[in-house]
Design a binder for these strands. Structure first.
Lengths: 183, 183
DNA sequence: ACCTGAACACCGTTCAAGT
DNA sequence: ACCTGAACACCGTTCAAGT
């Protein structure tokens, strides 16, 4: 079965959620699944590959969470930004992996594709969308990571942080509008 | 002597530069310094604290590298952005620590202070500078981290990447200008 | 004061062996 | 086919002991 691999990855993510990334040893994951650590290797292939699997899982969850609305691009950009931030708070231990590990997997390029689609619909000229989408991606991942790890200095907390993030998203919209007008 | 602590941190950073973060064990650092791992504890106090020390070292190096020019704010923002990116390429193994570990140290808030100073001189209203400076900080750290880890999808390489980053910085300048006009 | 040896409880990973 | 026991070379950290 290949859903065994999925089961292992799910349990690994749950473990990281509950006890942090440092607590995720092969042995601890195996115990959660009811196996020995050596039994995991055929399914997930070593710890490094397991971590890549978690990155993939997070990207998938982002895609699932996000209601792929066909509303106007501003609303979709807001929705994407909020989804990224929610993902960070849902998995504070695992989320930093997104920016720290190579985004080679197919589900990783989903984010880029979604972002480019939004910019396209906003009217951003085609030669500008790759760079602008990478910029926004870097901001969203960097911001959410910093919020969840405390890596960004002088970060607010709770409801204030939420309002500030909304204002940031509005600034991103403005950045896109400037790119459109500069055509 | 307290320069012994500094010597240990320097050797730890050099080790990470040469062989990656995963290779930085207490024992490996100690061997580089000519001691046993147990001798490090009084100076750096455990591995976690050593990593915090590396974060501090990177922030300090950023402050040193950056010619604190008194030119116009646009040039200073460019200089700051380039300094952050250069730091990432100088220490690709250690740089991701900046966003992944709590920025509690005094040298961490230096970056924020520098950024706020630039925005202030740009004419950004005082109640807008904290949020805008955090935005730019998140982008710079997120972008440079992603570039160095491959965590940002579809990232270009070499000289192309450099030109794209310059264009990104120009966009940041535009973002600031918009914030000034919105007063 | 500064350092080390020995020890403890853990790692990731391999591989022959079990069913 | 799927799993485990035993083993290997490593970890971080403590603490009594050395000089």
């Amino acid at each position: 079965m290949d859903d065994k691999r999925r089961l292992i990855l799910d349990q690994a993510l749950a473990l990281v959620d509950e006890r942090g990334l440092a607590a995720m040893s092969m042995r601890a994951v195996a115990e959660r699944v009811g196996l020995t650590s050596m039994a995991l290797y055929p399914y997930v292939g070593g710890k490094d590959a397991l971590l890549d699997g978690l990155v993939d899982l997070l990207h998938q969850e982002l895609g699932t969470t996000l209601e792929e609305g066909d509303g106007d691009w501003r609303r979709r950009l807001h929705a994407l930004g909020r989804a990224v931030r929610r993902l960070a708070y849902a998995h504070p231990g695992a989320f930093p992996l997104l920016l720290n590990r190579s985004a080679a997997g197919a589900s990783a390029s989903w984010l880029t594709a979604a972002l480019r689609g939004i910019l396209h619909d906003a009217g951003v000229p085609g030669d500008r969308t790759p760079r602008l989408s990478r910029m926004i991606c870097a901001f969203l991942l960097g911001y959410a990571t910093g919020e969840v790890t405390g890596g960004l200095p002088a970060a607010p907390r709770g409801e204030v942080a939420e309002r500030e993030f909304e204002a940031d998203l509005a600034d991103l919209v403005r950045l896109v509008e400037v790119a459109v007008r500069a055509t």
